[in-house]
Design a binder for these strands. Structure first.
Lengths: 252, 252
DNA sequence: CGGAAAATTGACTTACATCAAACTCAGTGG
DNA sequence: CCACTGAGTTTGATGTAAGTCAATTTTCCG
């Protein structure tokens, strides 16, 4: 059915694929020598409110990052995949719970050690700073999505950015595996599970996507999807992470 | 009318009031010697997409931080007040436009210089890191608000956190000046201006707030408001900014 | 194969948006 | 000092996107 299309998966995708940029080197230094740990689907790496003592690098698998409100509602802030580093953005305690969706392999590093290493090495320091900036950028993007897009647009945005996370060319059709449940998606987009389902069905009906089982999707017309999403993909660029030094409008 | 209540204002509120914490010292070092600049209401300090060459510290006044979507809708990401530092969270280009709501006094620092200073001083480095973490925390909090709260709850949250920003005691009534327009608030909360107005009227009708002119509000029953907001205030704690070193669940 | 969790679809309700019309207020100039 | 003005705000009438409640159907895992 999808014979001629390159199959991609959100599982097992490297963050900075097989290059040797400063970032990659920094990660190697940080986590390279540490032992790999495992956790079963459904278990938490850490919980919102726990003392934030460790930083985690996902090696494979997928986690949901969420907060539970006092009234019981759940807000899924985002998802973590292979290559992602968790637990940098918080201060004393973790801001979210990180729960394995699939079995997850990961490595972890004491935050004290990270701090020490950052103090030693400019490279590591700028790696940490880059991670933080990335998180700011992603979060603000999601604020825009939740605040200004309608349900259908939000879902389109989610699908396109999921595809973008996994491969480069954002114009050709993509096959992707959504490891999370419909409820995870709903809680991430500020919608109900029923609305997510209905909209998935609608996107299928009008030919923008196709599906194979619960978790496999084909985004058949990326441009239409991107349009639907309000051309909002991008903005969370993930390339260089050094401070710019040029001066534009304001004299130095 | 409000004789016995301490009048507070979002304008002119210092970030870390008159203490001598490491943070405050770091700011002094950063901006202390720089000249003060001025900008009229309605003008922009910087625009989304501009090369991010400077970091700004607001000295007085209020700015709105927003992004315009391709379809013309506006997302107000947040507001900046005296003591806030803008332009740290972005990388090559500013992520948002920062536009003066009132006349604004501010100081600015070339990002290159900031980077150099951070490389020199651990204190300045941890100040930058703290600012970034604060921004992550605030943004994620807002994701929760937009994704999970209903209109009335969002407005209550906005009012309570505006009061919290300006003074300590979160239980007693607060008088506060909202310098932004209803439209700013609406675009910040993902609502329409009409909904914001109607809900303001409703909160007045049921006695949770009172108003004096367009911009002055009294939050008469903070606890009820905080309840309405889903007890969601806090979580964006703004105290210490050093990395924790304790290990809790995971052995080092 | 059986069973439970997840997903889907339908019927109905509602919270918020939209459209439209006043009203308020702060600033300006006569 | 007051009338005029336009931006900002408020309120009302109505529409609609998304939520809620309630069955089914599908999937997948032991």
């Amino acid at each position: 059915m999808y014979a001629s299309q390159k199959v991609i998966s959100l599982r097992g995708m490297p963050l900075a694929a097989s290059d040797s940029s400063p970032t990659t080197v920094a990660i190697e230094n940080l986590f390279g020598s540490l032992p790999t740990d495992k956790i079963a689907a459904g278990r938490a790496l850490f919980r919102e409110g726990d003392a934030a003592s460790q930083v985690f690098e996902i090696e494979s698998g997928c986690v949901r990052l969420y907060r539970i409100l006092p009234n019981g509602r759940r807000a899924v802030i985002g998802f973590g995949y292979a290559g992602d580093v968790l637990g940098v953005g918080c201060k004393g305690t973790y801001l979210v719970t990180a729960e394995a969706i699939t079995p997850v392999r990961f490595r972890r590093l004491a935050r004290g050690r990270l701090q020490a290493m950052a103090a030693e090495s400019d490279l590591i320091q700028s790696f940490v700073t880059a991670k933080l900036r990335e998180e700011v950028s992603t979060s603000q993007q999601h604020i825009v999505v939740l605040g200004q897009l309608r349900a259908e647009e939000r879902l389109a945005y989610f699908l396109v950015s999921a595809a973008r996370r996994a491969r480069q060319d954002p114009s050709r059709p993509a096959v992707l595996e959504l490891l999370m449940t419909r409820l995870d998606i709903a809680d991430h987009l500020g919608l109900t599970i029923e609305t997510v389902c209905r909209l998935m069905s609608k996107l299928k009906r009008i030919g923008l996507i196709a599906s194979q089982g619960r978790h496999w999707l084909v985004l058949r017309r990326m441009n239409d999807l991107r349009n639907l999403a309000g051309e909002l993909v991008d903005a969370g660029d993930a390339g260089q992470f050094t401070l710019m030094q040029s001066s534009a409008r304001w004299p130095s």
